[in-house]
Design a protein around this nucleic acid. Sequence first.
DNA 1: TCACGCCACTGAACCGGTTCAGTAGGCTCT
DNA 2: AGAGCCTACTGAACCGGTTCAGTGGCGTGA
Lengths: 349, 349
Amino acid sequence: MAVTISDVAHAAGVSKGAVSYALNNQPGVSDATRGRILQVAKELGWKPSLRAKALSSAKAYALGLVVARDPKLLGTDPFFPSFIAGIETTLAEHDYTLVLSVATAPGAEERAYRKLADGGRVDGVILTDVRHNDSRIGLLRELKLPAVTLNRPDADSPFPAVSMDDTDGITAAVEHLLALGHVRIGHVGGAPEYIHGRSRRQAWEAAMAAAGLAADLFAEADFTAAGGVAATAELLRRPDRPTAIVYANDLMATSGQSFVQAQGLSVPGDLSITGYDNAEFTQYLNPPLTTIATDPMRWGRVAAQALLDQLNGTHSGQDTELQAPSLLIRASTGPAPSATTKPVPQQSP
Amino acid sequence: MAVTISDVAHAAGVSKGAVSYALNNQPGVSDATRGRILQVAKELGWKPSLRAKALSSAKAYALGLVVARDPKLLGTDPFFPSFIAGIETTLAEHDYTLVLSVATAPGAEERAYRKLADGGRVDGVILTDVRHNDSRIGLLRELKLPAVTLNRPDADSPFPAVSMDDTDGITAAVEHLLALGHVRIGHVGGAPEYIHGRSRRQAWEAAMAAAGLAADLFAEADFTAAGGVAATAELLRRPDRPTAIVYANDLMATSGQSFVQAQGLSVPGDLSITGYDNAEFTQYLNPPLTTIATDPMRWGRVAAQALLDQLNGTHSGQDTELQAPSLLIRASTGPAPSATTKPVPQQSP
DNA sequence: TCACGCCACTGAACCGGTTCAGTAGGCTCT
DNA sequence: AGAGCCTACTGAACCGGTTCAGTGGCGTGA
């Protein structure tokens, strides 16, 4: 931080202003002078102070991301690392940085947003894990913090959204199971306070309806492993228990599969299973999990770009729709078992 | 950002300086005036501009973390989310924020550190995944960026370290296997360019030596799933193939276990397996994985505190040693098979 | 009662950039 | 040749804090 713009100006024999113009490619200096200034700046190893820039241009040169998930859950979710890597690829080209906040405790989330907004630490935030009637929309409005949401919130939101439709993936999963002869296809839903929990359920319901089937084999869970087990157990107790279950995420599918096998049932012999997310570890399960692969990296890249566009006023105002996720067929799905329902054994054989 | 310190000063009928003193609990104002200023500031809803603070006090009020891992790998590793959450709990009390950088492409890592240092975006960084002869030590020295390393680098490092010894965990795993009657205990090592890849290998070697056994069943890998499979295959081809394998991380253990089972061997019947990290999903494998549980959250908390201490000059200069990780015994380890070595089947039965 | 010291506060400089109003000098046009 | 205009640049204000030298008023001691 030793060499400042004044040093460069002095060394080049011009004023601070001229240096500023020269280095920001602004008119007001001749090409010859510009060249000389750039040359001198380079020789002196001048790096503009972001702090000074931030103060005078009233920008923070940083974007914020508040993650309000249990760290345990985060560690099993392939979404965030890739998503953040995607954000990073965009930011790398625009000298912006990412300020990350992990807020676990209740109330910590709102505090985190206030902290980012209050001192002007960030110019905008990316909203993930959007919830039903998400209170953060109002909060960000109050804080006057520009934002981009991942998927369009169900409440009224003034912020542009970058969406990736769950529908196609879930529909593909259901159709895949139908093609395998399944009729009793259940769904273990994610937490309904999240809009992606809801939309996946709705997609499953719609796909069932399209096939002329009742969407009654539903059990609500919360995206956690324990929730997946409980919901699976509930579905297996049904007299008309499913021959296939579409889970709202990989973690529930994984714990569900593990539970089902511990009950002495075979996957996919007795029960076919699909997940959602394509977590790296799912290909090493026994059997490897059929799941739905999204593209979080691209999502991050596009969301960051949308936010930057919004900040410098070049955003169209339109929502962006990303390519739909795709079904990845592995060995946890197979032909529907014969019509007679095998009872759930009490003990593993 | 509407209300500034001048507004407060004007409203309270004092000078900017007085307001600054009052709000930073510095001497120079009477208690009465201080109270009045605080009152007025509160009424006006004044929040100090971090940007201005950063410029005038020559601090960034931010810590940096550069993660140079493949996002795919990151998604399976429970370490970072918890670690970052730990950092966050410390930062929450000290109006500092965390600037995160994910650098995947080659060369991107150094660029990331330079980006953080150049504009003075952060006051210091936390170094994770320390490598053998880590070039970042020299880089940070050149950039004059304070740092804290996770574990002590093997090269000369001027930075305080916060360490969690791998040795005890690996030793416990080996001893657990010995107690189960295993003698041919192999190790699938992590990438040797990482010091935790090396130290885990050394710990395994030491534990074997302590039991009077040769540490020859070693296969080098790279912490990835594919690497785990290849190394496992290599060990299984040995004439004296192991009856137990200690893996350097969960992902390799997971893919290794999956591979072993696909070869028609039983876990733990034919081969016992241990992992490292205690990733959430490992308890849902079949069988659930015996692994070593660390405490990344605490690591993050302590590392952030150490860095903050260093920044305000209150750091002791001593390395911090965290509590050793503990062995979590699950079902992937069991009694050693009888002495006759079962051949590796060519096909699953 | 006067000198002295201290407390409480002010005013201004400063951090390192950006930006705007102002100006010198050269060129064109008539 | 003089008016007018544009280009290239300067100097200063400004962003919103921190910090330091300076000052006025009050209390204290001799």
